[in-house]
Design a binder for these strands. Structure first.
Lengths: 219, 219, 219, 219
DNA sequence: TATGAATGAGTGTTCATTCAT
DNA sequence: AATGAATGAACACTCATTCAT
């Protein structure tokens, strides 16, 4: 959710640093890129990672493979920019709201709340990232975004949990196990929303908040 | 865990109906099938769903594609039998132990305990099923084993949770949300075991039991 | 002309070592392979290395890409088997005839003679190998069959030249330069035959023999 | 070395005919062209003909494909200008030095000497031209610079050889075969220099001079 | 004079599946 | 009961070339 996934984001933003006068062209490129990334997200979310071929992504964008490969050297780099887009926009939404809280109890609640709010308003994003996580492998065959690579994402709730224990607000438990359980509980939601469209996200959110409140808070 | 995943098991057992004199072959057939299923599990668990091509599975079984297609009409039906094998052996291990408990509190504890025991002793099974769940899609592009299809699996913990509430042992909460959360907490473990080989499964199990005990039990 | 190019030849000939009873199937495979190799040679010779795509080769063989890739794991291995075929059949023709000579003078003459005879009767072979030599590159971008890799081919004339000098039949000259010059003189012929179909190969051969006789023999 | 390779040189020089006021631009144009041609030579020599895509050439020139296509209508015409540049600069170096000789014996020696001097001081040129010769094909699939098209290049040594025979200095031999052999002997050198960097070009030159002296001169 | 954007045909390769034996 | 051979659709990727600006 932080540095690790944002590393190469700025690499493609150099054009911003160029002197004026070229913004028009640069704008076209930025637009196209954004469009293709958006279409990639949609395609992955809808058809699944395996079926999300470059042709399919291009088709959804109303163009042909060539265009995609013109803007992204690799399918790999396209996928990475998708991951980037998802994580950076998620962080942008959640981070300030969580930082505005004072106690660990409130922070944990806000973490769950904002995360599910973001998922609710970006359903494609959540499905897409889940597909990529589960399937995107390096040449060696290992999952690129496996459980270990997810550590920076887990770091935030883990930090909150540790703070709560330090401050005497939370019980004794293994913050690692709790963080893993919490993340999975949250990650389950996108699929739920898709499968049960009538599901009340707010109610679901409150239930999750209660579950983890009761599991963590000292009484 | 039950009917839903066993439905098409007998469909491929036609050989049983064949006239006499072929029972020896029928045994060979059963053996081969079991072997191929086992190799499919291994391959999917090891290489991931997308890389688990029929060639790879056959190679691991020491034969060629032809053999696989002789015993399984489709790759599809092979995968389904894999799912079957995993679920039925899981159920066989867990069910009697859970039924031996009397209170919902003990049943929930035993559910978590036996499920993680089974995962611990069948790591390939767990990885394989996770891969299949996340990737196996019907021709229409929909996930074959999605959250809806998983209902029968979720039915057991949900039943336990409902019973606990009925018996006044559990607090008020949405059993659906709790069951989903619990299942995801359990499903997270295989990947954890693979990524962190030094992880203490027993301790992890106890943490999970405590988390869900505190989230559910009336105090 | 020897070991270096024959190394992996036998790798694909294992079927020969198998017990009887399977020769029929093995025969089909061997036939197809031979046919595809022959078509590859023709295609490369006719269209040039760059245009000799797998589709083109398959087309000339009257099948589709799939068949080619069924019999050869790679385009790379196909090309290597082409090189193999060309060199081994060339050696098979030339070697015994050269060994039948006694003096270096006669051996050199026979070397030129038999090599051009072979080229004359296998024009496609010669063109194909020239194309491959000039264009087949490894992943690193280096020519796979470059001037250094050609050393074993050059070794034979060089040996003859050294023997002639040792025996006092040849003058003093650098056998390396002479061998390179001789090989290029021979390698020039296939293109000549193609460009000037009316060219008298026997006469050309005699001219070459005379040139190198005068350049080498002590008088 | 003469007409044949210079034919289309002026075709692309139309800018000269443009009305005044643009001479500055014309100069820029000439500079750009020369630069791109130089980069094309480098690229072809370094990466090989097949890998020398327009993108690669443009990259080496520090610009983009567009620029290349602005100055050269085709990749084809670019390649032809490369050939032109190489041959005309080669001729410029060799011709006056050869003409300064009086006897055919000295002319032949000078021909070999100056050609190898030029190759030694223009290694990229030599590699590039070899790559183009071996690979550049017309739409029909025929080699553009094949053995027939090379006739004007061979014309010079052939003329020298004929003169030598006429003047009674050279033996009887087929000037065509001798010229072909000589050209190939010289054309072999660039690859040798690249593969064996420690090779002594002067010594190699003397060896070649001796070989062809002994093969041609009456004694 | 220059170039960013787009395109479409082509490349090598993989894979589930079929079929004759 | 088994399998070697074949197939065709799909995939990621490259490239010369065009075009509007």
């Amino acid at each position: 959710m932080t540095k690790a996934y944002q590393a190469n984001y700025n690499l493609t933003m150099e054009s911003k640093n160029k002197p004026d006068g070229q913004k028009a062209l640069s704008f076209i490129e930025a637009t196209r890129r954004a469009q293709i990334i958006a279409c990639a997200i949609e395609t992955i979310a809808t058809l699944g990672y395996a079926q999300a071929s470059v042709v399919q992504i291009a088709k959804r964008a109303g163009t042909s493979k060539g265009v995609v490969f013109y803007h992204f050297t690799d399918k790999e780099t396209l996928i990475e920019q998708v991951v980037n887009e998802v994580y950076s926009s998620g962080t942008q939404y959640m981070e300030p709201r969580i930082k505005a809280q004072t106690t660990a109890v409130e922070m944990l609640k806000t973490y769950i709340q904002t995360n599910l709010e973001f998922i609710g308003s970006h359903r494609m994003y959540a499905r897409a990232i889940a597909e990529i996580m589960a399937n995107y492998r390096t040449e060696g065959g290992k999952l690129r975004y496996d459980v270990v690579a997810e550590e920076p994402v887990r770091a935030i709730p883990e930090m909150i949990l540790r703070k709560g224990q330090r401050d005497g607000l939370f019980k004794a438990f293994d913050p690692f196990v709790m963080a893993v359980t919490l993340r999975r509980a949250i990650d389950a939601v996108p699929a739920m929303l898709e499968a049960y469209p009538e599901l009340d996200l707010d109610a679901y959110t409150q239930e999750l908040i209660t579950i983890f409140d009761q599991a963590t808070r000292k009484n």
